[in-house]
């Protein structure tokens, strides 16, 4: 019997390279690491610079110093018009209220779209998808006029109330997709036990939707924490400012002279984002991979 050699998977896909796969792997890792270094070095450098004496901040490319100090933090914390503690508390308050609002409105809406039959369902779902693509500019001016008429300027209401009314359609869509994957037998069993829709929603669907709720909470956190245009429009009084506004005005007050303190405060502003990322990166990355959230 003549031997017909069946090519193996590896032989086919590797196609007789003269170079060693080990070398190719090494080159690939070297390239990826080089890209990462270029991308992340500025941030790492900023963090390192924030711990160096201000004279050293600008004229050193390296990360290390003989005299690390917390002076930039001490100086930066109170260098703006108000203490950064105020800005942090404000940011935390707005972010917490935004998260609560998104969880409330988006989960209710998503349950209706995923589980209930009602007139105009397809039209309304189309509308939901359309608003995901709508640029926010078109509602920026009229919302500003509306909130101005309501005397909501210099309150957190313009930043928070829209979240309680489900304007962030992406999260509704995310939850609809998630709830659709939950077995309907659970709903039916709950119905037989006498649960109405409200109890099914609270007792069955919400506990099972924790991953989707977690993703929504995390992305809402990041968006609210980073938000700049909203606070810029609606918060003029420094005692209401968020960290973003505080940093921005810091740049106006100190200019180029105090990069040390500016870097210190920037580091603190980024810290919660990095912290949540480290704590929940699996949830975040899966959220992006499965729904395209950005």
């Amino acid at each position: 019997m003549t031997s017909v050699s069946i090519p193996t998977r590896r032989a086919l896909l590797g196609r007789r390279r003269t170079t060693n796969p080990f070398v190719i792997g090494l080159i690939r890792h070297a390239f990826l690491i080089a890209v990462l270094v270029v991308m992340l070095y500025p941030v790492v450098w900023m963090v390192a610079a924030s711990f160096r004496p201000s004279a050293e901040v600008m004229n050193s490319l390296g990360l290390f110093s003989r005299h690390y100090t917390l002076d930039n933090y001490k100086h930066g914390w109170s260098a703006g018009q108000l203490d950064f503690s105020r800005y942090f508390l404000n940011s935390i308050a707005i972010t917490a209220l935004s998260i609560a609002g998104n969880l409330f409105a988006c989960s209710l809406t998503a349950y209706a779209f995923a589980r209930l039959e009602f007139p105009l369902k397809r039209v309304l779902f189309g509308l939901l998808l359309a608003t995901m693509l709508l640029p926010y500019h078109v509602t920026l001016v009229p919302q500003y006029i509306l909130f101005n008429e309501l005397a909501w300027m210099n309150t957190y209401l313009p930043l928070v109330v829209p979240k309680w009314l489900g304007v962030e359609a992406f999260f509704i869509f995310l939850m609809v997709q998630f709830i659709r994957t939950l077995p309907r037998e659970l709903d039916d069993a709950a119905r037989i036990d006498g649960c109405g829709h409200w109890r099914t929603f609270i007792r069955i669907i919400m506990p099972l939707s924790l991953p989707a709720l977690g993703t929504t909470a995390l992305f809402t956190f990041i968006n609210s924490w980073n938000d700049f245009l909203g606070p810029l429009l609606y918060l003029n009084r420094p005692e209401l400012w968020t960290v973003s506004l505080g940093l921005n005005s810091f740049l106006d007050v100190t200019g180029e002279s105090a990069y040390g303190s500016l870097f210190a405060m920037s580091t603190l502003a980024l810290a919660p984002i990095v912290g949540f990322f480290l704590g929940a990166q699996k949830l975040l990355i899966e959220g992006v991979a499965t729904t395209g959230l950005k």
Binding site: F104, A105, L108, T109, Y111, A112, L116, E117, F118, P119, K121, L124, L127, L128, T131, L134, V138, T139, P142, Q143, L146, P162, W164, L165, G166, V167, I172, G196, H197, W198, F201
Partner: peptide, 23 residues
């Protein structure tokens, strides 16, 4: 069920009318 659904939808409906379509 339709009535229940609209109750669930009410925050979003208020939002879309007052904060998106109206504006």
């Amino acid at each position: 069920e339709g009535l229940t659904a609209y109750l669930f939808l009410s925050p979003w409906l208020i939002g879309i009318v007052l904060l998106t379509l109206g504006p």
